[in-house]
Amino acid sequence: MRRTVPILAGLLGAFLGAIALSVSTGPTAASLRHVVDAFAENGWSGIAGDAGAKVVLTLRFPRALLGALVGGALSASGVAFQALLRNPLADPYILGVSGGAAVGALAAFLLLPPDSFLPLPLCAFLGAALAASGVFLIARRRSGVSRERLILMGVVVGAFLNALIMLLVALSPPGKIPGALYWLMGDLGLGTLPRVGVLLPYVAAGTGILFLLSRGLDLLLLGDEPAFTTGLPVEKMKTVVYLTASLLAGSVVAVSGLIGFVGLIVPHGARALVGSGHRRLLPAAFLLGGTFLILADILARTASPSGELPVGAVTALSGAPFFLFLLRRNGSKP
């Protein structure tokens, strides 16, 4: 038996530590201490009256929470897509979710009045859901869904949507484009609290369902025929995993834009720590992904004095060296 419990406990510690660091970092000098001190002095009214405590609780804490949810959900979705497609190169965006979300978001940006906030995530989510279900329906045959066809159709639909994105960008008035592109690069900054509220039920349901299906995900790694003869209703399982992982990724993309790298690499990092059994892997990937994205977001909002960087750019820049180290260290176990 691997020493799983201490590893998971360590990951949980890192996760909570990252949240604590995140709420204590920023241009206003405020940290968790402010909250504790204010509470100790005057109870809840003390917190309400303390400017530092307010910054921590109403601005930074929701943002850390959003990072945790987004990073965790992308990683869990990535784990599921890699098992579903039996492909270590799969990520949550491989089957059209990203292109669909981008087209939906761009369409919202270009066609809707600029002051409305909610329609954008809604359109992005609809775009993601449409693209993902389209890929699935095209790849489906009477005998079931083959992985090869799913990947092929995902790539074709992705190319089509990319062309559509370029077309939309080329045809739109210049003033509108930077905002849309910035959203596409992924950010955790604006309207944080409502976003956490919208995202939380999706992430809880999606990751919950995947966790319940852990043993079935283990069997999917074997391939369709061995999984079938070992007792898994393979086609049903593939449909449920596909829908769950796509909706999970779609809801995340809708509220945070396209944050890459996390869903592809964190699953491998988590496997290096706890192995491929999904009962251990999913919680480990969620915690590692959440921790990683919170840290990347701290970097994104503090690194440049002129303003925030898109967190989607920071994830790969900062994460690549760390994960290269982690994967090299465990390179003996492919």
Binding site: G223, P226, A272, S276
Partner: peptide, 15 residues
Amino acid sequence: LSVVGQDPPIDFPMT
């Protein structure tokens, strides 16, 4: 009923 067939290779770490 159990079956031993020709399994495809597994590209993930598993003991």
